[in-house]
Simulated assay, not measured.
Amino acid sequence: MQPFAGRAAVAGIGMTALTRESGRTELELAVEACRAACADAGIGPRDVDAVLSYHLNDSAPAVQVARALGIERLGWHNDIAGGGDAGGVDPGRRGDADTRRFSAKYRHL
C-alpha cells in the first residue's frame, strides 16, 4: 500500500475541448479545466488546497492558475515538465493531503 493511500484523492475531472488553435491562453484553458474538475467534484475552487501542473513547455504555472481560480491559501503546488508517467507518480509527494480536498491536475495537448 502507498503511504498516501486514504489521505489524497482525485475527486473531480475536468478538461477543455481538444483543439490546435483555441484563441485562448494556456492560463485561460487551465482555469476552465480546473473549474470543470471542481464542478465535477461538487466543490468550489476556493476549497482546493493544491495545484499540480504537468506539461511539455506549454502551460501556465500552478501558482498563476491558483490565483486565477481565487485560491487564497495554496497549501501545495508543483510544476512538472516532461513526458511519460512523471505526472502519474507525483501525487505520492502530496501524501499530506486533507481528504476533503483535492489537487487539480491538467494537461494541454
Rank of each mutant, 00 (worst) to 15 (best):
A60T: 05
F102N: 04
V51Y: 11
Y54Q: 05
V63W: 06
R94W: 11
I13V: 08
D49L: 06
P45Q: 06
R20S: 03
S59P: 02
I43M: 08
I43T: 04
G87T: 05
C38H: 04
G75V: 00
G75Q: 04
Q2I: 13
Y54S: 14
L56G: 02
D96P: 07
A66E: 11
D79E: 13
G42M: 09
G6M: 08
G14N: 06
A5S: 12
D96Q: 05
H55P: 09
L52N: 08
R46G: 09
L56R: 13
A81D: 00
A41Y: 14
A50C: 03
I71K: 01
R24G: 06
H108A: 10
M15G: 09
N78D: 02
M15C: 11
E21R: 01
R20G: 01
A9V: 15
P45T: 02
S22C: 05
L18T: 11
A62H: 08
Q64V: 11
T25A: 06
R35F: 06
K105A: 00
G92R: 09
Q64T: 09
R101Y: 01
A50Y: 01
A5V: 15
N78G: 09
G6C: 10
Q64Y: 10
G12D: 15
V89F: 10
A9L: 14
S59E: 00
R101F: 02
V31C: 13
A17H: 14
A68G: 10
V31E: 10
G92Y: 03
A68W: 04
